[in-house]
């Protein structure tokens, strides 16, 4: 780098700090997360979702043909819907899997490798450890959503195409490119918040175990259980508590005028999950054996 000036010795100095700076920790954590092969594999898979969707629709679908899952039918000849449809599709499994993997590796995986002990002995500080780990998982969540959204927009414009840079809403109105991209960004932000809810819960589970697979099983099992609970009519009163019951709100971004109720309430619900997950994580990490 640039510190090769011969006169000055390498700039490592002894410090009297009792904890390492949080910024350095978080940066190291993010670097570590991004170098991990499985993170990169999952991000690559996520990039394939909009591509596969777009190519499939371009090859087979036309307006009116589609009876595909979710919003897929709305994508044909309407490329800017692709990122939103792809996010909705990925939110059902692949995106939760990605953040759950990151959260599983963050605490349970580190414990399994014996590296958590090193961090506790440094010492990083147990609350700062949670903050640092949360930064890593947050990065994965944001990147995962961005990959789907950006690849989705590009695939939508290039492969699927559409009426000259506009988006046709489900309500039959037409939005210009700027507003269409705004809608995509809205869904991306909303999806990130939903993923953070999953990430917080996954981190909490991760704080209790040293088996990363337990975390993945808990998250995916939880999503399946939520799906089952949501399908039982006599448990309808549970609906407001289930994270997944707000996930149809993503399609609201394709309605015109934009209804914000569903997006807002599902965001609020996700934030409650985030707070509870974070509190449990901190509580458990403060008493966990290293």
């Amino acid at each position: 780098m640039t510190t090769v000036s011969a006169s000055a010795p390498p700039a490592s100095r002894a410090s009297t700090r009792s904890v390492a700076p949080l910024g350095r920790l978080a940066a190291a954590e993010i670097r570590w997360v991004l170098r991990r092969p499985r993170t990169l594999v999952l991000l690559g898979l996520l990039a394939l979702v909009p591509i596969a969707l777009g190519v499939g629709i371009a090859l087979t679908g036309g307006p009116g043909d589609g009876d595909g899952p979710g919003l897929v039918a709305a994508v044909a000849g309407n490329g800017l819907v692709l990122p939103i449809a792809a996010l909705g599709l990925a939110l059902s499994l692949l995106l939760p899997l990605t953040v759950a993997t990151a959260a599983a590796d963050a605490l349970a995986g580190e414990a399994a490798h014996g590296t958590l002990r090193g961090l506790l002995l440094a010492p990083v500080g147990r609350v700062r450890l949670v903050v640092m780990k949360a930064a890593g998982v947050l990065t994965v969540a944001v990147l995962a959503v961005l990959v789907v959204a950006v690849v989705g927009v590009l695939t939508g414009l290039v492969v699927v195409g559409g009426p000259s840079g506009t988006m046709i809403t489900l309500s039959g109105t037409t939005l210009g490119l700027g507003e269409a991209l705004g809608r995509v960004a809205l869904v991306a932000g909303w999806t990130i918040v939903q993923l953070l809810a999953i990430a917080a819960v996954a981190l909490a589970v991760s704080a209790f175990t040293e088996h990363p697979l337990v975390v993945l099983a808990a998250v995916l099992g939880g999503l399946i259980v939520f799906g089952v609970l949501a399908a039982v009519p006599s448990l309808e009163w549970l609906q407001p508590l289930l994270l997944t019951s707000g996930w149809t709100a993503g399609a609201d971004a394709l309605r015109d005028p934009l209804p914000l109720d569903g997006l807002a309430s599902s965001t609020g619900r996700a934030l409650v999950y985030v707070v509870l997950g974070a509190a449990v994580t901190v509580w458990q990490m403060r008493r966990r054996d290293g």
């Binding site: 510190t3 490592s12 009792s18 390492a20 940066a27 190291a28 090193g118 440094a122």
Partner: peptide, 13 residues
């Protein structure tokens, strides 16, 4: 990076 006593360039230590 987690060592409180280290500062600056970590490659030397």
């Amino acid at each position: 990076t987690a060592e409180p006593r280290l500062d600056g360039d970590l490659r030397g230590p």
